[in-house]
Design a protein around this nucleic acid. Structure first.
Lengths: 340, 340
DNA sequence: ATTATAACCCAAAACGTTTCGGATGTCAAG
DNA sequence: CTTGACATCCGAAACGTTTTGGGTTATAAT
C-alpha cells in the first residue's frame, strides 16, 4: 500500500542504499541517479516512515508534556498561550508536541517512566511546578532532558523559565496600599505550588513594607478557577469586617472574585478593589477591566520551546535559568482612591 | 545504557523470543521462566522501546491534531474544553495526542502528508471545518482514518461530531425577536467556515420566521476573538441607526461586543442585547452574564475521542454522524424586554 | 603497462521488537 | 517399543530506515 525505499529501489533498478543516499543528497551518487530517484519518489508519493527513522536514529523529534491531574486545564487561557508559544517554536524546528494526560495523581511518575524510558520523547516540559517536585527529581535522576515552567524550593540545578511572582505580588500590594487600602485579602492556590509560595512571600513582604499587619484569616485557599475565586470571595465578603481589596493568584480567580463582588451589589474598583495575575486577554475586556500583573505568556512559551529543543539536542544552555520581570498593569478594578 | 530484551535474555539465559513471550503472558512459557523474566525485567528497569514496537506492529497509538494557521488558538476556552475531553478519552485507551502546527496556510496539506503518510498517526482529528474542506478531501482520498469536529457542505460520507448551529442560531433570533428587537445584527467569522454558514442559515430563517427583514449591512465579518467582537460592535454602533441587539458567532466575540457597548456608555441588556454562542465558563461569570447557546464541549470532546479510537482500530462506527442539539441559555445580557 | 584516483554503487548490519514455524524433550497411551 | 500429545523453548524473518565499509569501473598519472 504505502511506498517504501524498497519500492523505489526496485522501480529505478538501484539498491535501497543508493536510493536513501540519493534522497539525502549524499555526494557519492551521480546527479542523474539522484534526479531519477527524487522524481520517482515524488511520483510514487513516497514519504519516509518516521517510526523506522526514529528507531534507527534513536531520536524522536518530539517534546512531551504530561498534564498533571490537578494542573491547569487545557482551557486555562494563560496556560493555553504559553503552550501555543511552545508549540509554535518547536514546530519551526520540526519537532512535535506530545500531550499525555496522567490518569491518576499517583500515576504522574509512572506516566513519565513509561513515556520517557520508552524513548518517545527527546525532552520534556514540566508545568506548574511544586515546591518539592517529584517529577523534577525523577527527571534529574534519570538524566532526562527537560525544562520547567516554574521553580522549586530545593537547591537543584535545572533549566527553567519563570516569572518573578514575589516581585509581581509585591508591586500589587504596594499599589493597593498606596490607594489607601488596609484590609487586603489574598485568594491563593495550594501552597504546595511554587508560584503560590513566591506570591505569598511577595504578599507578606509587601504588607510589611507598607507597615500593614498580615491577617492570616484574610488569606484563603481556593481552586485556581473562576468558580474558586467566586467562592473564596463569598467567604471573605461574609466576614464581619470584609476586606476592601482582594488580590488573586491569577486572573481567572480574580474574574470570579469580581462576579462575587458584583453579585453582592458592591462595585468593583470603588467598594472593593480586585487584582489578578497573568494578564490574560480577558483582563482587558472585562468590566471593569482588571488590574493585574502582566506575564509575557507567548514569549515565555517561545523561550521554553527553544530551550526544549536545545536540551533535546544535548546542548548546554547558555542561560539555563530565566526569571522574567513581571509588570503591574493598572486598570479599572483598582480604579478609585479610598478616603479613609 | 537502556536495557533491552536482549539484555534480559542474556541475564536469564533464555532467548529474546522467550523473554518477549514471557512478558506478554504467552502460555507456552513455563511459570518459573515467566516469573524469572518478569522479576529481572523489573530489577533491571526494563521499559519496552515503543518506537520499535510501533515499527513492528505498524501502529502508533497516537491520534493527531494539526492546528490550522487560522483556526482557533490553543487559548480559546471552548476549543480547549473540547480538546481536554478528547485528550482525556483517548488517554484512557492508552493513546497519545500529537499536536503539530501548520507553519503556513498552504502548508496545511503538506503537514498532513508528512505526518500521516509517515505513519505517525492512527487517526486524525480535524477541527474547524470549512465549507469545502481540502483536508477532509485529502484524508478521504488517502483513506486515512479521521473524525471531524464539524461538517462540510459537500456530500461526502465521513464521521463527524457537530452541533446544530442553524437550530441554535434560530433559537437565538427567536428569543431576541420575542423580546421586541427588530434591528438585530450579527457578527460572524469567515463564511468559509461551515459553522458560520449554518449559523447564517439559522439567522436568516429565524429572521424570516419572525417576519423581520434581514439587512445585510447588519451582518459583519470579524476575527473570532474578543478584539474582533469589539471592533465589529464599534462599527455596528456607529451606524446612524444602530442595532438594538447584537448576536455573535461565539462567546469570545460576544464578550468583546459587551465591552464595546459598555465603553459607549450603553448598558448591555437594556440598551443593547448581546448573545453569544458556545457557553464558555466565562459566559456565566461575566457582567452582565451572557445569554448564549450551550454546547457540551467536554462531552463532544469525549465522543470525538471515542470515535477517533474506533476508527484508529479500523472499526466501523455504529453512529458515524453525531449532530448535537444545542440549547439556549438565557441570562442577563438579553435581560430586559424592550418597549417599542 | 601499471598504479593511483575518482566516481559511483551496494551488501549487510544495526536499531528493538513481535511472531511464525518449527525443534526438543517428556510422558502417557497404544 | 512406537506414536502422539503436550510443554517448553528458540532461530529467523520482518517492520523501514541509515550507515559502515567496502567493491567495481573508468580515467588520469606514472
Amino acid at each position: 500500500m504505502t511506498v517504501t525505499l524498497k519500492d523505489i529501489a526496485r522501480q529505478v533498478n538501484r539498491s535501497v542504499t543508493t536510493v536513501s543516499r540519493a534522497l539525502h543528497d549524499y555526494d557519492d551518487v551521480s546527479s542523474e541517479t539522484r534526479e531519477l530517484v527524487k522524481r520517482t519518489a515524488l511520483e510514487m508519493g513516497y514519504a519516509p516512515n518516521v517510526v523506522a527513522q526514529r528507531l534507527q536514529k534513536q531520536r524522536a523529534d518530539t517534546v512531551g508534556l504530561i498534564l498533571p491531574v490537578f494542573g491547569p486545564r487545557l482551557s486555562d487561557p494563560h496556560f493555553g498561550d504559553v503552550l501555543a508559544g511552545v508549540a509554535e517554536e518547536i514546530a519551526s524546528a520540526g519537532f512535535d508536541l506530545l500531550i499525555s494526560m496522567a490518569d491518576s495523581p499517583s500515576d504522574g511518575l509512572d506516566a513519565y517512566r513509561q513515556k520517557i524510558v520508552g524513548r518517545r520523547l527527546d525532552s520534556v516540559l514540566v508545568i506548574r511546578t511544586q515546591r518539592h517536585d517529584q517529577r523534577i527529581r525523577f527527571l534529574l535522576h534519570r538524566n532526562m532532558p527537560f525544562v520547567a515552567n516554574g521553580r522549586v524550593l530545593d537547591d537543584w540545578d535545572f533549566p527553567y523559565v519563570d516569572v518573578d511572582h514575589a516581585k509581581g505580588m509585591w508591586a500589587v500590594v504596594q499599589h493597593v496600599a498606596e490607594l489607601g487600602h488596609q484590609r487586603i485579602a489574598f485568594i491563593t492556590g495550594s501552597p504546595q505550588l511554587t508560584f503560590v509560595h513566591y506570591q505569598l512571600e511577595g504578599f507578606r513582604q509587601g504588607m510589611a513594607n507598607a507597615s500593614l499587619p498580615t491577617d492570616e484569616s484574610q488569606i484563603v485557599e481556593a481552586d485556581l478557577t473562576q468558580r474558586g475565586g467566586y467562592k473564596g470571595a463569598q467567604i471573605l465578603l461574609s466576614h464581619t469586617i470584609p476586606p476592601t481589596a482582594i488580590v488573586a493568584s491569577n486572573d481567572l480567580v480574580a474574574l470570579g472574585v469580581m462576579s462575587a463582588v458584583q453579585d453582592q451589589g458592591l462595585e468593583v474598583g470603588r467598594d472593593v478593589a480586585v487584582v489578578g495575575f497573568d494578564d490574560i486577554p480577558m483582563a482587558d475586556t472585562s468590566h471593569p477591566t482588571l488590574t493585574t500583573v502582566h506575564q509575557p505568556a507567548a514569549h515565555m512559551g517561545q523561550v521554553l520551546g527553544q530551550m526544549l529543543i536545545s536540551v533535546a539536542w544535548g546542548k548546554t544552555l547558555t542561560r539555563p535559568q530565566v526569571l522574567v520581570e513581571p509588570s503591574l498593569v493598572i486598570r479599572q478594578s483598582t480604579g478609585l482612591d479610598l478616603w479613609l
